[in-house]
Simulated scan of single mutants.
Amino acid sequence: MAERIVTSIAGKSPVAVAVNTAAKAGEWIKSKLGSYENLEEKTSSQDLVTEVDQGAEKLITNLINTYFPNHAILGEESVEPGPEGAKRALEKMRNEEYLWIIDPIDGTTNFVHGFPFFCVSIGLVHEGELAAGVIYDPLRDEMFVSEKGKGAYLKGRQIRVSRELRLSESLMASGFPPQDRSDRHLQKFTEIVPKVRNIRTSGSAALHLAYLAAGRISGFWEPSLNVWDVAAGVLLVQEAGGRVTDLQGNPYTLETTDIAATNGHIHDELLKCFKNYYD
């Protein structure tokens, strides 16, 4: 829908602002790797936050407010922990004309342990639809950028999803979010393993989606995610020619928490694996 493409707001490019902001936040986060001081648990011992997460969110928020002071901002570290808190926060801001959705460090557990797979994720929603998405991996200096209707890019070059036609040829990714270590998810995981070439579980939904957009993996699924985990990545995948739904095949919305994302070719075959998931 061309009328929803947001190229410029008050003479400023939101994509340029997001790129600049992600780069600055990422460099600061990188400088703190291995030197955080305060580690706290939110909902569980697997759901972590440090002062670096909080500082990065403040930095991002301040920079966006400098350019767009009237825009709403939904950041992970400003929301009550747990799925209900996330749901209420999104409902409160859902009807804002412009809504920035921020995950200052997607992959905090990786950051804490020094495992090099985490990123800054910044998405922009305009009138309820994803308009821009930026994911920055500071350790590899990789900036993934998408704008609705204009494609997806990495370091200025357009990227596309992979070409695998069958699950058996596919390198997949998934994860185990803190709020869902359920037997159902584990069972489904073990059922899918023999059907695919292999599976990666690297601990950052946003970066997995960016890798899917870049053709590095063929598909990704994960239950019980929050909007800040996936908003920017969903647009990247869509603009790179991929497909994103829930596990039943319904189109992605900001309220979708159970994600299935693929290169499009293998999507229906993947969804068949979840046919009885909610029974």
Rank of each mutant, 00 (worst) to 15 (best):
R197D: 02
S174T: 15
E191M: 08
S204R: 09
A240F: 11
P194H: 05
W228V: 05
M172W: 02
K188I: 14
S204D: 10
E169H: 13
I192M: 07
N250R: 15
G203P: 09
L167M: 07
E164C: 12
S202V: 09
L235I: 15
E164S: 12
Q238P: 00
V244P: 07
K188N: 15
D180E: 13
G219Y: 06
V234M: 08
V230A: 03
V237H: 01
T256K: 04
R181W: 15
V227E: 03
A206F: 09
I217L: 06
T245S: 13
R243V: 15
P223Q: 14
N198M: 08
I192A: 06
Q238T: 11
I199V: 15
L171H: 07
Q238W: 10
M172V: 04
R181L: 15
A205I: 06
I199M: 08
P223E: 13
R166S: 10
V234Q: 04
V193Q: 09
G219P: 02
G249N: 13
A232R: 04
F189L: 15
N250Q: 15
S218A: 15
S182N: 00
L254K: 07
E164I: 04
T201N: 04
L212A: 03
I192R: 05
G249W: 10
S224K: 11
A232Y: 03
S168D: 09
V227I: 14
L236E: 02
